[in-house]
Amino acid sequence: MKVIFLKDVKGMGKKGEIKNVADGYANNFLFKQGLAIEATPANLKALE
Rank of each mutant, 00 (worst) to 15 (best):
G24K: 12
V9S: 01
N27V: 15
K19Y: 05
Y25N: 06
K15S: 06
K32D: 07
V3E: 00
G13W: 08
F5W: 01
F29N: 06
N43R: 04
A22C: 05
L35I: 10
M12N: 05
E17S: 06
A42S: 13
G24D: 15
N20S: 14
E48I: 12
K15F: 06
L47D: 04
K32T: 12
L35S: 04
L44S: 03
E48Y: 08
D8G: 07
P41C: 10
K14Y: 14
L47E: 05
G34E: 10
F29H: 12
E38H: 08
N27M: 15
F29V: 15
G13S: 02
K19M: 10
G13V: 03
F5P: 00
A46E: 15
G34N: 09
I4R: 02
I18C: 05
G24F: 15
E17W: 06
F31S: 01
G11Q: 07
E48T: 14
N28Y: 09
Q33N: 12
E17F: 03
G34H: 12
L30G: 00
I37F: 05
K32F: 05
E48F: 13
V9K: 03
G13Y: 07
E48R: 06
F5V: 01
M12P: 02
L44R: 03
D8N: 09
N27G: 08
G34M: 13
F29L: 10
F31Y: 07
Q33I: 11
K19H: 10
T40P: 03
F5R: 00
E17D: 10
G34I: 03
G34S: 09
A36W: 02
A39F: 05
K32A: 14
L30C: 02
P41A: 11
D23T: 15
G13A: 12
V21D: 01
V21M: 07
D8C: 04
N27L: 14
G34T: 03
V9M: 04
D23A: 14
N20A: 10
N28C: 10
L44P: 03
T40D: 05
Q33S: 10
K7E: 14
L44W: 03
K32I: 14
E38A: 14
L35F: 05
A39D: 02
G11V: 02
L30H: 00
D23Q: 15
V9E: 01
K45Q: 14
A46T: 10
L35K: 04
V21A: 01
A42E: 15
T40C: 03
D8Q: 04
K19L: 05
K32C: 13
L6V: 09
T40F: 02
K14D: 07
E48A: 15
D8W: 06
I4N: 00
F29I: 15
K45W: 09
L30V: 02
M12T: 07
K32P: 05
D8V: 03
A36S: 01
D23L: 15
N27F: 14
V9R: 02
K2V: 12
Q33D: 08
I4W: 03
A36G: 03
V21N: 00
V21P: 00
K19R: 11
K45F: 10
N20H: 14
V9L: 07
K10F: 13
K45E: 13
I4K: 03
G16T: 03
Y25P: 06
F31K: 06
N43L: 11
K15E: 09
K7N: 06
A42G: 12
V9Q: 02
K7Y: 12
F5E: 00
I4P: 00
L30K: 00
K14W: 11
A26F: 12
I37V: 12
A39G: 05
A46I: 15
L47Q: 09
L35V: 04
I37G: 01
G16C: 08
I18P: 01
E48G: 10
P41V: 13
N27Y: 15
D8T: 10
N20D: 13
L47K: 05
N20P: 09
L44C: 07
E48M: 09
Q33G: 12
N43M: 07
L44F: 04
G34W: 05
K19S: 08
L30M: 02
P41N: 10
A36F: 03
F31N: 02
I4C: 06
K14E: 08
E17Y: 03
E48S: 10
Y25K: 06
L47T: 09
T40L: 06
Q33E: 15
I37L: 12
G11R: 04
L30S: 00
L30I: 04
A39V: 07
V9G: 02
M1S: 06
A39M: 05
G13I: 02
A39E: 02
N43D: 04
M1N: 03
E17V: 06
L44G: 02
